[in-house]
Design a protein around this nucleic acid. Structure first.
Ligand code: MN
Ligand code: MN
Ligand code: MN
Ligand code: MN
Lengths: 224, 224
DNA sequence: ATAGAATATTAGCCTTAGCTAATTTAATAT
DNA sequence: ATATTAAATTAGCTAAGGCTAATATTCTAT
């Protein structure tokens, strides 16, 4: 490989996947990673062995994988670039919020410190991406917004859209945008039907009804 | 390789290199490619055999390589993305013209049709990159400006900086920018010393002297 | 405690894109 | 025309990331 012709892509995407999966359960199993990445488990096993050798994860046979400090750093840096890129594509190139993710998934690996720095500056050091996901700071700090799913709000309250879980689902994002439920918008909860029933709310003066599934993907912060 | 997990980078850079080298001499020898890319000739031989199999070049043993129509298309498309990206980085991110090239060299392979289209639109369908290099059109058309090296101009004439040959040389670009000799600027040739001697000119009201080497890198168009 | 099922790992192959060393082909100079 | 020399190709290795098929380990249910 001579001067270590690094292809960052695989490494960074693995670490990002492990980062996400670890939120659910910490030593992450190879099969969960395989599932998340759409590769076969055998390939994952080999890859995590490599990542272990590079000191980016700790891997114990049949026991799963955890990020090391170094690996966490790479994961957060990649996440930062991903979200900065999403916002940049929306702001500077006028892409819609339902298409930025797929482009960012590629560009995040082609952005270096200098470009990251410029995007950050041009965007005015933003804290959130177009879907309300927090952009990790350069030092790895990541804002913990305490937002709750729409369905868990008390009826009658006013709340603000904070974040859409899963910026991957383009159709969902289009639908949500059509309802006007973009991050930052204030909403009043009118009614919540039991048994995972629909939620009625007032958005921008308009009365809307959304199903439970969708409501679960929309995280809100209560208005004081 | 399953669903052809293409890494565009190597392929596109090879085709771009062959495109440039073919301007000097058409069937391009493998060793010229090796030299241009900083790899060993043996690696090039293997790669051009692959490119031949893919129909992107025509390769005959010991005889050299030429682009096919398909290969030319890829080369021009890559060049288009490279130059659009350079301009975009300068305009939208405020990078200086001496640093855009190296970033574009990576990004050109991460930009797809959609992003290319957006950059093009945001930039107002530009025809030239920051170094005065023509940006190939989507259909592969490429503007043929007839510009001549500064040293070949008649003394006393007025001319405009059209293009800097070699956008790769960051130090040269910095020096040239310091002289104010950016594309579009009008200049009056005051004096040209023989035997590849220095050229004296008036730029923006200031009298400047540049060496022959540098003057050879600056292409000019005569002002009517 | 143990069989059977579910998970995970290993073995063995593949492709890309690099390298060095050995060999072959072409070019040049006598 | 032939001998050197220079240029190019082949042979054989390496590493990353994939895959499938074969094993091995761990979990679960009796
Ligand atoms: Mn990615
Ligand atoms: Mn996002
Ligand atoms: Mn490139
Ligand atoms: Mn350029």
């Amino acid at each position: 490989m001579s001067s270590s012709r690094k292809d960052r892509r695989a490494t960074e995407d693995y670490l990002k996947a492990i980062y996400y999966l670890a939120e659910e359960q910490d030593p992450v199993s190879t099969s969960r990673i395989a599932e998340a990445r759409g590769t076969r488990p055998a390939s994952v096993t080999k890859m995590v062995q490599r990542l272990d050798r590079q000191g980016l994860v700790r891997y114990r046979k049949h026991r799963g994988v955890s990020l090391t400090d170094a690996g966490l750093q790479v994961a957060l840096s990649t996440l930062r670039r991903h979200r900065l890129t999403e916002l940049f594509l929306a702001e500077a190139l006028g892409l819609s919020w339902d298409e930025v993710h797929e482009h960012a998934e590629v560009l995040e690996h082609a952005i270096n410190d200098r470009l990251e720095e410029r995007m950050d500056a041009v965007l005015g050091y933003p804290e959130f991406d177009p879907h309300g996901d927090p952009i990790p700071a350069k030092d790895g700090t990541i804002a913990e917004i305490n937002a709750r799913p729409m369905a868990s709000l008390p009826v009658g309250c006013k709340a603000r859209v904070a974040r859409i879980v899963d910026d991957t689902n383009s159709e969902l994002l289009c639908y949500i945008e059509g309802l006007g439920l973009v991050p930052g918008i204030e909403v009043e909860i009118k009614q919540i039907e039991p048994f995972e029933g629909p939620i009625t709310l007032k958005v921008d003066g308009e009365r809307r009804v959304v199903g439970h599934k969708v409501a679960a993907m929309i995280l809100m912060t209560l208005c004081s």
